[in-house]
Design a protein around this nucleic acid. Sequence first.
DNA 1: GAGTTTGAAACT
DNA 2: CAGTTTCAAACTC
Length: 759
Amino acid sequence: MMEMGTPDKTQISNTISHFEDSPVFNYLNSLSPIKPDKSTHVAQPFSSLTFALLPSIFASPQVNSHKESRFLKRSQELDLENAKDQSENESKVAAVNFANNTTGQNENGTELPGKFYVTINAGETSISPADVIELSQTLKYDSGSPDCNSTSPKENAECHPPDGLHLLQHSEDHESKEKGDAEGISGQNRELMQFSLDGLDLKSTDLLIFSSPNDASAFRGLVQISPDTSNGLLASMVPNAAQHEMLTASENRRLLLHQASAVEQYETEGHSFLSSESHFSNGDAQTEMDECFDKGKGGDTKALVPYGSKMSADLHRGIRRRCLDFEPTQPNQKICDSSLAVQQVTDNKESKDKRLILVKQGVTTEKRILPGIGLHLNALTSSSKTFKHETMLPDPSSQLSTADQDNLNPVNSENEVDPTVKSLPLMEYDPTCASMNYEELNQLSPRKKRHRDLSGEPESCKRCNCKKSKCLKLYCECFAAGVYCIEPCACQDCLNKPIHEETVLATRKQIESRNPLAFAPKVIRSSDTVAETWDEINKTPASARHKRGCNCKKSNCLKKYCECYQEGVGCSINCRCEGCKNAFGTKDGTILAGADCEMEEDSENCEKSAVAQKNMELNDSLLLSTPSELNRPVLPMGFPPKAKQLRSSLVSSSYSIRPYQRTGGSGLLGPGLKARQTNPEDEIPRHTLWRCSHHWPNEGRLSYQQEGLSSSCGLWFYTGSTEWRPEADLEIDSGFPFTLLAQPGVNSLFENASRPSFG
DNA sequence: GAGTTTGAAACT
DNA sequence: CAGTTTCAAACTC
């Protein structure tokens, strides 16, 4: 499979321009986590650089394709001595720290509340406050946006440069981050910020730093500047179609590898940092990352963000997130310091091989190499966390050839990799850990730490205590979570470590062969409707259901023995539990509001329960009152036979989705989807079957909402492997206006696919 | 911290 | 597929 996952960018651009006003275009935009916003054409030359934030829901372990060892090898390839040539080569690195104090989501993606400070350091590496350029609060996401109401020519230049620097603006509701919910990041809250820095005089600029006036909501990214590009910041990374050749895939990979290695090395230097290798976040990790940043100690930790969707995507793919291990970090070791900068060094021998050198407080530390692309903008919002690198688990299912792995081929053999997936954050992030400061974490025993999980913590911070399984069975939480065991684990004879990569991979493969969904999330958060706020998302435990259901006999689903209860979700008909009293909802559909909230976080979960009950009741009534639902066949969920159809819910639990409103008629299809509309002339509700003709890159969901039915029916596309499950077609009653929703993964699928076909 | 309980995972 | 065993987390004391 080849170019499916890597569509020609020029073609895409042209297509976009042609369809800009078409429903298809709108539809695609509606699906995209990136706000369509204005002047898409402006971004075209740099489309490859636009980030697409991806929720963790697409972070299935199965899709990870890169082996950690590859990164390590690449890390070793990093020639630090070449860093000495940085000045000679006039390498330029821009550490772009984006900050926005956005307090709410950006509905149309055109406004970016908050301020941007651009610090330009013309000197070696020092950062002078005098060099700070404060950008207008109205700095627009889109460089081409007419809304870029800069009040000064300089600002305008930044807003409308010939060569756009496209950066993903991660605008999110800060409060959602406070929730500590791993799903707190909404696509709605992620905006693509595209602005060019070409207008800036960067000839003598080694550093370009966007400092956040508000650390709490700041997000930062590292952007490297091409050493051989004088007219455009980031030109090397953001190849201008008119001036630069697009970096080849291998070059991009190399660049990424170098950057990843830089982080790795930096870590080895004793610095706490998010490793591009291990901290690549996928999916939910975005939010989690935000959490880490928000709540970390010191408040100076910054996320280094991968830049360039293509490159980052390459690297992202196959990255497994790993729990972050918060360790005490000396203040001077925090690379995520406000004064942090990264300098890129270009190898004379290979101009396109770029490395980043960490520059801290005006001091260039060659050994402290950081990747400009090592971190994701997801991490952007926050301020401060200390991270410890942890290796990630490669995706055993990716089965890349050695060559591919060495090259970190961004496109796997199946090529269904969507840009969005590729642009997963290059960092490991532990939301769980993020919810506490370091001391708190370390004071907790593994057991107590686990208790944290009940409060909505994700699985990324697993700490096992395996004694016999060698952490190579699903008994092991770490292994089951697709992560390597880490130091806090108390496991014995652990083989779930990078040094046993082959064993781990083989074992995973074996288990997956037995059950393709073995490493898939156990709890499916149905997303039947558009969540308007993160609060909604965070309060809908009942909207989720355990994938397989529990089998509790004695716990009455009131203890964490019950996986459903443990995950904070209600039991469903999939459950074979006896005497179910799950506070989040019993399998018979009732919620025992106020029932035994025996969990430690009683109040919290009782609250969840109440909300869940409300949602469930409403959903149930809606479902029953929805005529089309009666006509609609039960949708296969793509789950094992035991799986049952998910209960519909009113609130998206994972990501906000930008709906595309469409009224009636035939289905509006995105690329890769084939609509099969049944007899449009029928008076009875018609159905449109949305079928994805592509291999599903990971997991995701496609849901819809129909106005006339006031009911939201969701469908999860879910694959344990990269295989698309044809049974997961989405049939829509096209007789009613409907809103088709999709997560970024779905969207990216569309983007990679050919033009949509109607009918 | 040790022992028990529990249910998922693994095995037959 | 069902029954049994193994395992580690959850829980109790």
